[in-house]
Design a protein around this nucleic acid. Structure first.
Lengths: 364, 364
DNA sequence: TTGTAAGCGTTATCAG
DNA sequence: CTGATAACGCTTACAA
């Protein structure tokens, strides 16, 4: 049984085998694969048959070495944050792999070597070893060190999350302000005139944008809006990498105070689904109800959690497949030598109305 | 600006450049990298300096082509299930990438091509293209088609989740029964004599194991135990790929009925953190409180959600880093030609006690 | 210990 | 449209 080190498919079918089986040269097989139009139809058919027959698939290493194309995109996984876990990582990654796969690309996951890993070092390694054609970055901050680094390296890249004005605009992002504005309009349409907002980790650009969008739209509609920031502000120095702690028990206290105040809001929007949990608790602790006849509550991200709350939580759904598709498309444009994106792309979100804001009380 | 297709680092520094810079042959550079002990110390130092100086890193494609080792492990992402999202995917993946990285391996993510993708086809593609040295499978079911397939292919593999008795035992798993037994003992130690259990997707092996572990330990301790299965049983035919729907509104109804019954349990364990949410709701709907002085509740997985509940949810924490480490270790053993694992490995979980079961009521 | 030669499987170039 | 030849960058033999 012991057959020595299990070298990957040593002796697997090669292009030569196919050529022999089809009675052509290996070059013709290569052409059949990479430039079918250059091969006579009947020859092509014969080669294709042989390929299927033998289950042949080109060795990606050989192909990469020769052509230079790795057919692989690197995804730099965001740093852990136990307190405010990236709720989109799972769903986003799946969408990214699918979008890449549709373009014949694979996704290579990588992260800084722990502990206290330096993302730029991890990027350097991957690029120097020529393992990927381009990079996908996520959770991009303002003046993000990773962006500066990959831009200087000249590697094709895109980011999920916008970059600053002076930086390359290779980003795709959701319209955070517009999303929260839609939430406010939804609440206003239900008759709410006094609305509260529970933020979380306000230092993160997307969280700041949500708060701003909320306040702006509330102001525009003439609503009375009160934002609440329970988390102690974090110094910018602490930013690189680690997002700040999100809401928690103190968030509940803050919302409770808000609900006891003189202008008790009849609706509270939260910057994330987890933060909405704190709103639920605060509302109940004050002897009020969430939803119809009580305080309306909304979240952000439309995580699976929303359906399991009672009442189910109204939330903002991210167009993950569209985001992933746009990222991959823009990245491959660069890989193929077309011009780098000159402007970022902002995608619309979708408001999913459920019982917590007066929608149907019972979930599907 | 237009410099043609951005071929990955074409013209990057090669082993030849290093050799020239260090005044040795390229073979010596290769030795310095792959077998340092075969190079004279002073030569080694000179080569190492040149390597650092030039930022040289071997081209992974060339290396793979020549040596056969891809230095890459494939991770087959579990299929989506919006109703019961795999709550460990994010944290597990991070641990897996770290564990692989510690062994000099990268992780390539792949999934069946949508729609209705066939996992075995996806595996075939990856293996035929020789892109990975081995495979990591997750969410393994009994008599899983993927296991049979990779076993027949002869590709090194491991699975997170145990395989059936007749199958290769290349698995690492958590001790689900023992975990739930620990939960029961915890509840018993707090004085609970009547305990309930809310399951979810009982057709999944790990869910079935949790239920069994709960019932067995309750019986052993002489407790009165009542399991509740709100979800309609799903026919085995529906299994391949898609797990069954988890709890939901009907779960709440079921638990409420349990709490209204003649032998009202004073504690309810849930098979997942999301299911525990339904228990919270049921307890409150019955006018009872969760935690001290009310009904004790526990979850499973220790997702970030636990800390955001009020009271915080007691839950079972998975040793994700140990799992990932064991998986990578066993996989690489096979890749290196050592014997395939002859028995699965069961890892212990950790019970994290919080307010929902009488622990400290306030979170950190 | 170091240098030389060969070849991994593929694609690009250039003759037929 | 097809077939021979070279080269991608590296590592494994073998010779010096």
């Amino acid at each position: 049984m012991s057959e020595g080190p299990h070298r990957p498919r040593r002796g697997a079918t090669t292009i030569e085998d196919v050529a022999r089986a089809a009675g052509v040269s290996r070059q013709t097989v290569s052409n059949a694969l990479n430039a079918p139009h250059r091969v006579r139809p009947e020859t092509l058919a014969r080669v294709t048959a042989a390929i299927r027959e033998l289950g042949y698939q080109p060795d990606q290493s050989a192909r990469s070495l020769r052509s230079g194309a790795r057919r692989t995109l690197g995804y730099l996984a965001p740093v852990d944050d136990p307190l405010d876990p990236n709720p989109l990582m799972a769903g986003f990654l799946e969408a990214l792999v699918d979008a890449a796969g549709a373009e014949g690309q694979r996704v290579l996951l990588f992260r800084p070597a722990p502990p206290a890993g330096d993302p730029t070092a991890a990027i350097d390694e991957l690029v120097a070893a020529r393992q990927v054609d381009g990079l996908v970055l996520a959770d991009v901050l303002a003046r993000d060190a990773r962006i500066a680094h990959v831009a200087r390296l000249g590697v094709p890249f895109v980011s999920f999350g916008r970059t600053g004005p002076g930086e390359p605009q290779h980003w795709v992002d959701i319209a955070n302000e517009a999303a929260m504005a839609a939430v406010v309009r939804h609440l206003a349409a239900l008759g709410h005139r006094r609305v509260g907002y529970l933020g979380a980790a306000e230092e993160l650009p997307w969280m700041a944008a949500r708060r701003a969008g909320f306040l702006a739209e509330a102001h525009r509609l003439g609503l009375s809006a009160v934002p609440v920031f329970p988390a102690a502000p974090v110094s910018p120095a602490a930013l690189p990498g680690l997002p700040a702690p999100a809401a928690g028990p103190s968030a509940v206290a803050a919302v409770r105070a808000l609900l006891r105040g003189p202008d008790r809001p009849t609706a509270v929007a939260a910057g994330s689904d987890l933060a909405a949990l704190d709103v639920y608790e605060a509302v109940r602790a004050e002897g009020l109800a969430v939803g119809l006849g009580g305080v309306a509550v909304t979240g952000f991200h439309d995580t699976p959690l929303c359906r399991h709350l009672h009442p189910a939580l109204t939330s903002v759904r991210l167009p993950l497949r569209a985001i992933a598709g746009a990222l991959v498309g823009r990245l491959l444009d660069q890989v193929r030598g077309e011009a780098a994106p000159v402007a970022g792309l902002e995608l619309a979100t979708e408001l999913v109305v459920r019982g917590s804001s007066g929608g149907p009380a019972a979930g599907g």
